[in-house]
Simulated scan of single mutants.
Amino acid sequence: MASVDLEDLCLHINNKISTVKKILQLRNIGQDPSLETVLSKIAHESQGLYLLLNKLEWEVQRQETLKNSLKELEISIKDDFTAATHLKENIPLHLPKKTKSGATELKVQSEVAIKSDESLPKKPAKEKKLIKEMALLTIQEFDSIPTYMKNRLTYDQINGFIEELTKAVVGKYKILHQPPKSMSNVVRKLFYRFQEEETKDTKGQYFIVDQDIKEFTNLKIDKRFHGMLNILRHCQRLREVRGKGLVRYTIF
């Protein structure tokens, strides 16, 4: 019995010695100049694998959303089919028919209504103003961003940032497209601030400032925020226009 215990102890000690040797070998490998290229290649491949996993995760989420949409569509089609089947099986034997006099009277009324409409001056239809929104990044654009610029930011995080900036743009220009008379005092103050921030360089363009981001989003204006702005400038989603002590983020 004691012999078996001694053998187990020897085996355990040998395993520990083997592990220590491997650790020392690995530490020496990291200091070996001849293996520097191999280690660099491994680091590069690891980065590529990380990006590939992010793409796969995004694709899985997209497929999950598509699957849910198809389920909802299937339920809707089944409901419509059930309703159509019920109508088909319950068609009444005799449908009411319009009398000739009733049809004539309806025709006369329609002609009178048309003539009266023609006599009234027509108001021009109001043109609906569309608000420009920043386009999301594509996978190809994300891959083209330098690694030092992305740091640890993911594809979804950058596009989420774009969506938050779009909220600020939409919130601001919805107010600017309203008549001031219909606004509350708080909204009217915003309206006049927006107008004061306009310059000749931003005329006809959509832009926001830091105060708009604080007003309409939950984004924090910190180092990470400016890092993402740098990425959007690189991808030509916005540019900065400075003047009057303000930085204006103009949307492309």
Rank of each mutant, 00 (worst) to 15 (best):
E163S: 10
T82Y: 01
H44I: 15
A135V: 08
L93W: 02
I158H: 00
N15C: 04
I13T: 03
T199M: 01
E164N: 08
E118W: 04
E198L: 02
T147K: 14
G204M: 02
T147E: 11
E240W: 03
F81V: 13
V108T: 14
E59K: 12
K189H: 11
T37Y: 12
I231E: 01
L246P: 03
K107M: 06
L53C: 11
C235S: 15
L106V: 06
K174M: 14
S34K: 13
I162D: 01
I131T: 08
T19L: 11
T202C: 00
E127R: 15
M149K: 07
E57H: 11
L93F: 05
T19K: 15
I42V: 15
K214W: 02
K126T: 10
R188Q: 15
K115E: 09
R248P: 01
L56R: 11
L176H: 04
E240Y: 01
G48H: 04
G102R: 05
I13V: 08
T199Q: 03
E57W: 08
L49T: 14
I114N: 04
E105A: 08
D156V: 15
S76L: 03
A83E: 12
R62Q: 13
K22V: 05
K71W: 06
V108I: 13
Q205K: 05
V38I: 11
A135E: 09
Q47S: 10
N28A: 07
H86P: 00
C10E: 05
V112K: 07
T202K: 00
L52I: 03
D79K: 05
L165A: 03
T104A: 15
K129Y: 06
S34C: 02
F191D: 09
F161Y: 02
I42H: 12
I213E: 03
K220G: 10
I208G: 01
K123I: 06
P33C: 00
R239E: 04
E74V: 04
K126M: 06
Q47K: 12
L95Y: 10
V247A: 13
A2W: 11
M134R: 04
S69D: 12
N151R: 10
L56D: 14
N230G: 12
K150G: 03
K200P: 05
